[in-house]
Simulated assay, not measured.
Amino acid sequence: MNVGIYDPYLHILGGAERYILNIACCLSQDHKIILFSDNAKLLLEAEKKFGLKLGQIEVRTWPKDRSARQHELKEFDQFFYVTDGSLFFSPAKQNLLIIQSPDHIPANNLTNKIKFLSWRKIICYSEFMAEIIKKRLGKTAHTLFVPVAQTQNLHTAKENLLISVGRFFPHLHNKKQKEMVGILRALLKQETIKVKLCLVGSVDPDGDAYFKQVTEETAGLPVEILIKASAQTLNALLDRAKIYWHATGYGEDLVKHPERAEHFGVSTIEAMAHGAVPIVFPAGGQLEIVNNGQNGFWWRTPQELIKYTLELLQNDKLREKLAQAAQKSSANYSEDKFCEKLHEILKS
Rank of each mutant, 00 (worst) to 15 (best):
L287H: 07
K74E: 01
V3R: 10
F297G: 07
Y125C: 00
L43I: 10
D65N: 14
F50C: 10
M129S: 09
P91T: 07
K194M: 00
L188Y: 11
V146W: 08
D253K: 09
R136H: 11
A241V: 03
V214C: 10
I20C: 13
D30L: 08
K189L: 08
Y333G: 01
N160I: 04
A323E: 02
A276K: 14
F36H: 04
L188V: 03
F50P: 11
V82A: 13
H11W: 15
L187M: 15
W299D: 06
I133N: 01
G166K: 06
G85W: 08
T233G: 00
V3L: 12
Q294F: 06
S28G: 04
E131K: 15
Q213T: 15
K115F: 10
P205S: 11
L154C: 13
G4V: 05
W299T: 02
V255I: 14
E311W: 13
P222G: 11
N112G: 11
S330D: 00
L322K: 12
G220K: 14
L44C: 03
V200N: 12
G249T: 05
P8F: 05
A46F: 07
I12P: 11
D103N: 13
L43S: 03
Q29W: 03
Q56A: 12
N292C: 03
L238G: 03
N112Q: 13
K53R: 13
F79A: 14
V266Y: 04
A271I: 12
I243M: 08
L54Q: 03
S334L: 07
G265D: 05
I133Y: 11
E335M: 10
A241W: 10
G293V: 00
H155N: 14
G220D: 12
L154G: 15
Q232H: 08
V255G: 07
K176T: 09
R240L: 05
L161M: 09
H263G: 05
I123C: 11
K321E: 02
L221N: 02
S334H: 04
D239V: 06
R69H: 06
E191Y: 07
R300A: 08
Y9Q: 10
